[in-house]
Design a binder for these strands. Structure first.
Length: 203
DNA sequence: CATGGGATTGACT
DNA sequence: GTCAATCCCATGC
């Protein structure tokens, strides 16, 4: 399966955040279906790009379809897909995956066994897939990280929206999007994730 | 150049 | 429920 084209990312970031749920994130022999995203835009204070153009935010303000990877709390690498036109600072944070391929590699890198613990958080999935800071600015169309359209067996799944997690500024915006029924969504789960659809997993 | 704050996680009470 | 780990980077002196 080939990567999503750059045009996919060159539109309003909230629209891309919704569309990325169900798509497949792939790196270094490992892949997972995206089950949770968040949108960030320079117009609101929770976005790193809100401070304007700096050394850190130049990737966010650059062309779409690039990786924005940064260090969080000194420990974790968080992966985002840069969106909208060049000159706009916007990105989608990938917060959780349903593991699909390379689970043994994920287990080795995470030091854990349980499938639902491998990629159930933004710092966990980068560790599982081996995504580090050196991939900041890399091209999502050419690789080495790629995002592909949903697999044929991806189930039609309700999208649950809610406020973003772990932020203090602009916390009221409902820019978190989760696929209903997947246990790999990070905690806390939004209301309805457990109830709407029975928990399930892809093979 | 010093400081402080995170888009988190896992271990522990 | 609480809390520490640990580092990049924006800000201010």
């Amino acid at each position: 399966m080939s990567a999503l084209p750059a045009d996919f990312y060159a539109r309003p970031v909230v629209e891309v955040a919704r569309a990325l749920v169900g798509c497949v994130l792939r790196h270094d022999g490992c892949a997972g279906a995206i089950v949770e995203t968040e949108a960030y835009h320079d117009s609101e204070a929770a976005c790193h790009a809100h401070v304007g153009l700096t050394a850190r935010t130049r990737i966010l303000f650059g062309p779409p379809a690039r990786a924005y990877v940064y260090r969080s709390y000194g420990i974790h690498a968080l992966f985002n897909a840069v969106c909208e036109d060049e000159g706009v600072g916007a990105a989608v944070l990938i917060r959780a995956l349903e593991p699909l391929e390379g689970l043994d590699g994920m287990r080795a890198r995470r030091g854990l066994e349980r499938r639902e613990d491998l990629c159930s958080g933004p710092g966990k999935l980068t560790q599982a897939l081996g995504i580090e800071l050196e991939l900041n600015g890399s091209d999502l169309v050419r690789g080495p990280i790629s995002i592909e359209p949903p697999r044929a067996d991806w189930p039609p799944s309700e999208l649950i929206e809610g406020p973003r997690i772990g932020i203090t500024k602009a916390a009221e915006l409902p820019w978190r999007f989760c696929a209903a029924g997947f246990r790999s969504v990070s905690k806390p789960w939004p209301p309805g994730l457990r109830d709407t659809v029975a928990p399930r997993a892809l093979s």
